[in-house]
Design a protein around this nucleic acid. Structure first.
Lengths: 209, 209
DNA sequence: GATGCTATTGGACTTTGGTCCAATAACCAT
DNA sequence: ATGGTTATTGGACCAAAGTCCAATAGCATC
């Protein structure tokens, strides 16, 4: 395990004075800060494993804040966003919130309201990263299954008996037992109940015949 | 089963001409409509089992639209809401969206955009009602369990063996078997996998010792 | 006090699932 | 061709779970 670092807040705003004042405010909260003048600069960075969030100006030169939001989510790379804007409209704010923004604030922002939103966004990111890690772990285990095992798994978690599964697949009950044991081992499930939950989180279908 | 009726759209707006024109628009879409001049009138109605949604003016005399939204959700009675407003602000729209509004539109509303939002809201209500019905059904089954059975259930779905459960509760394995059989019967689960899913949907805890 | 529900346990027996050891065959890659 | 993975099956055996039938005891309600 990596040592627990303080969360990092990314600020994208074309106004240097805004960047400076927000950065100062955030640093006082004990967070790390990185600032960018344009959306593209932010996108060029890689590797963001620490808990983090994005403070984003809606009106940016070139790629707008809303564009960046969509770009990020289309990359399956969603980071909680706190929008700030000088000249926002209701449709803008509605669109931002629909796309999952944590908050949408008008300049000048109230410090307390802003910091509360940042804290909330960071917390949300923590949750999402935790979820994501768990999902990745489960999918990794699923990937270690052989084709046959992947075929048997959904039938097992659907509640079918070994005998029934064997019949459905035209095999012996004995064979199913072996597959089943391997599945339990590879998925690191220590009970059927466990396996059902793991399969569910991993997105395994299990409609009964 | 009740005959499938067309969805019903509730409109709350203090402007009679707005009520009339929106109502006409919605009726042409094949929905039923009920209009109200104030939030309180809407709240006084009961029994809303059909798929439905709420079209709500933010600026109402007396209880505002946002108040009504909060009031509804605090009653655990959430109906998808499409907000419309003549004099809205960004904070208003953000608050509404945070509280789960489907859409927040400024007057005069574009007919197509409005109708799309209404359709979406009705669809969301359908989903939620379906979910809710399923949950109610499961909770009803859970309610039919005796205290002992309710105690045994979480242990069963945690993956513990009858033997282990018996030891933990200071009973015989035999007794657990009986409870377990009754649980399966009352929950209408036809396999352990099924029971695990039912318990999960019903919100049963199952941390392992 | 009789009835009904809940909780508990026993015995006998069957079915199902899991374990250990072992074997065969197909296929792929070095 | 030899070794590794995958898929398949067998036998023996044990452990766990489910299924009958049956019994006792507490507790509340009528």
């Amino acid at each position: 395990m990596k040592k627990q670092e303080s969360p990092i807040v990314y600020i994208v705003d074309d106004d240097p004075s805004v960047r400076r004042s927000l950065a100062r405010l955030i640093r006082l909260e004990g967070f790390r800060v990185e600032t960018f003048a344009q959306a593209q600069d932010f996108l060029d960075e890689k590797e963001r494993t620490d808990p983090s969030c994005l403070v984003l100006d809606v009106n940016l030169p070139g790629r707008s804040g809303l564009d960046l939001q969509r770009e990020l989510s289309s990359r399956g790379y969603s980071m909680p966003i706190v929008f700030i804007t000088g000249y926002g409209t209701i449709p803008m704010s509605v669109q931002a919130m629909k796309d999952g923004a944590v908050e949408f604030l008008e300049k000048p922002v109230n410090d307390q309201v802003f910091l509360k939103a940042v804290h909330q966004a960071v917390e949300k990111d923590r949750q999402m990263k935790r979820q994501y890690m768990e999902l990745k772990e489960i999918q990794q285990r699923l990937a270690s299954l052989t084709p046959r095992e992947r075929e048997v798994l959904p039938l097992v978690v659907s509640g079918m008996l070994n005998k029934q599964i064997a019949f459905k697949l035209g095999m012996t009950e004995k064979t199913i037992k072996v597959h089943r044991a391997r599945i339990m081992e590879k998925m690191e499930a220590d009970s059927l109940a466990d396996l059902v939950r793991l399969a569910q989180k991993g997105g395994i279908d299990f409609q009964k015949s």
